Measured scan of single mutants.
Amino acid sequence: MASQGTKRSYEQMETDGERQNATEIRASVGKMIDGIGRFYIQMCTELKLSDYEGRLIQNSLTIERMVLSAFDERRNKYLEEHPSAGKDPKKTGGPIYKRVDRKWMRELVLYDKEEIRRIWRQANNGDDATAGLTHMMIWHSNLNDTTYQRTRALVRTGMDPRMCSLMQGSTLPRRSGAAGAAVKGVGTMVMELIRMIKRGINDRNFWRGENGRKTRSAYERMCNILKGKFQTAAQRAMMDQVRESRNPGNAEIEDLIFLARSALILRGSVAHKSCLPACVYGPAVASGYDFEKEGYSLVGIDPFKLLQNSQVYSLIRPNENPAHKSQLVWMACNSAAFEDLRVLSFIRGTKVSPRGKLSTRGVQIASNENMDAMESSTLELRSRYWAIRTRSGGNTNQQRASAGQISVQPAFSVQRNLPFDKPTIMAAFTGNTEGRTSDMRAEIIRMMEGAKPEEMSFQGRGVFELSDERAANPIVPSFDMSNEGSYFFGDNAEEYDN
C-alpha cells in the first residue's frame, strides 16, 4: 500500500510504541512475548500442572481467558453494579484439565481477579502490559475465525453469508486497541457500523446529549479505520460520505453494504499476525530463551520457528480426527482463516481442507461434555516452508469459486491468482447506482469489472525454506488448481455463540 510509510507498523501498534527502528520493534515485541511466557509459567505453578498438562491447549485457553477477564475493567465495573446470582464479580476462573488415573478430569478453578492481575503485572515488570493482553485477544479471535462461520451475524446486519472472507476479527472485544483495529476485516468494521446506525434509528437519543457526542466521535473513528483499509480513492470518498452524514440511517447502511461487497474484489488491507497460545510461549521462556534479547516478529519467520520446536497437546472428542484438529489450530496460529487453501497447503506441506470436510468441533470443551471418553493427542503445528504475512489485500483475480465463501483475504505475501467468483459478486451490483453516491458507485463498479483474471497478485513473492531466515531465496510455489480455494466452501461450520 502506498501510504505504508505514514502508518505505524503493526509491531508498533502491538507494543504501543512511538516510531521505533526494526531492532527496537523486535525487542519490544519480544518483551511482550516474554511477559506472556513468564505469566503462563507462574500460572502453571499456581495450578500445580504437570509439564504435559501445561502444554494442553484447553488449559492455555482457560488461563488466557482468566487474565483477560481480570483486566476487563468495563465488564468488571458492570458486574459490580449489576450483581447477578451466583456470579462473584471479583473472581474469575474456568475449567482446568488434569490427568488422573490414566483419565482426563475437569476441575473448575476460581481465583481472585486481583490475584491474577498481581501475577500478570509481576510477570511483566510491574506494568499492565496491555500489548500482551491484546495479543491474547487476537489469538482467540484468530481461533474463532478458523472455527466458526459468522453466517447468522452477517444475515442479521443485512449482509450476504458468502462475504465471510471479510469477517476477520469479528469476535475481537471493543477494547483491543490499535492492534485489534489493524486485524479487523472490512466486513467486521461494516458490521460494527451498521449495528451502531441501527441503534440510532431505533433509539432517538442515541446521537443526542453528552453521551451522543461520545457516540458520534466513536462512529467517526470507526469510519476512519474502515476508510484506511480501502485502497481505492472511490471507496475512500464513499467512506467520507458515510462519516460526514448528519443523521446516519438506511442510506448509510446501503452504502456500507455496497462497500463491503466491493471489497470482495477491490480488497481492503487487513493486517495478519501470528499470535500463538500462551502454552507455546511459556515452555520456550522456561527453556531459557530470551525473546527480548533475541527479538521477535509476528509477521516473519519467528512464529514458524517457534511452532517448529513446540509440543502442544489437545483434548480430542471420541469421533474427532486429531489431524483435522491440528489443521484448525495451525490455521489459527498463522492467522489464515480466509487465505486461499492452495497457498496454505503449499506452505504447510500437507493438504489443507475446507472447514466442512474437517471432523472436528471447536477447541474448547463445553462444561456439560462427558470427560470419560476424552483422549488427548499432539497437535501437528509444523510447516514445510515459511512466508511473510501481508497486510495488503493483493490485486484481484477471477477463479472458480464456491457456493460458500466467494473470495479470499490473503494472509501471506505469496504470488498467486486470487480466487473470487466474479459473476456471483457482480450480480449483486445491478441497477442500484442512484442517489448521492452514484458517481462513486459507478466508478467502483467500473474498477471491479476491469479486474483481470490473468493478473498475478504479489508478483514474484515466494515462500522460503525454514533454514532461509533472511528470506534470501524465494520459492514461487505451484498450486494444484483442481483443489478448492475457499475454506468455508459450501460450508456447515458451527455458528459462533458468545
Rank of each mutant, 00 (worst) to 15 (best):
G5A: 01
M13A: 01
G17L: 02
N21E: 09
K31P: 06
M43L: 09
G54S: 15
Q58R: 13
Q58C: 07
S60P: 00
V67L: 06
S69H: 09
K103W: 14
V109M: 15
L110V: 03
E114P: 08
I116F: 15
R117C: 02
G126D: 03
T130D: 09
H140I: 09
H140F: 11
L143S: 12
R156G: 03
T157Q: 02
G158A: 08
R162S: 14
R162N: 13
S165F: 14
G169L: 04
P173S: 03
R174S: 06
S176V: 11
G177E: 02
A179E: 05
V183P: 03
N205H: 12
T215E: 12
Y219L: 00
N224L: 10
A237S: 15
M239E: 14
D240I: 12
V242H: 10
S245R: 06
N247C: 03
L256E: 08
F258V: 08
L264S: 03
L266D: 10
V270M: 10
A271P: 12
A271F: 09
G282T: 08
V285M: 09
E292R: 01
K293F: 10
L298Q: 10
G300R: 13
F304S: 15
K305Y: 04
K305F: 05
L306K: 08
N309V: 01
S310E: 09
K325L: 08
V329C: 06
F338I: 15
L344W: 10
V352N: 10
G356H: 10
G356F: 13
K357P: 11
K357F: 08
L358H: 14
L358M: 09
T360I: 12
N368L: 14
N368A: 12
A373T: 04
E375S: 02
T378A: 06
N397W: 14
R400M: 14
R400C: 07
S402V: 03
A403E: 03
G404V: 05
Q405E: 13
F412P: 09
R416N: 03
N417S: 02
D439M: 09
R441M: 09
E455A: 03
S457G: 05
G460Y: 13
L466D: 02
I475D: 09
F479M: 10
A493V: 15
E495W: 01
D497Q: 00
D497Y: 04
N498D: 08
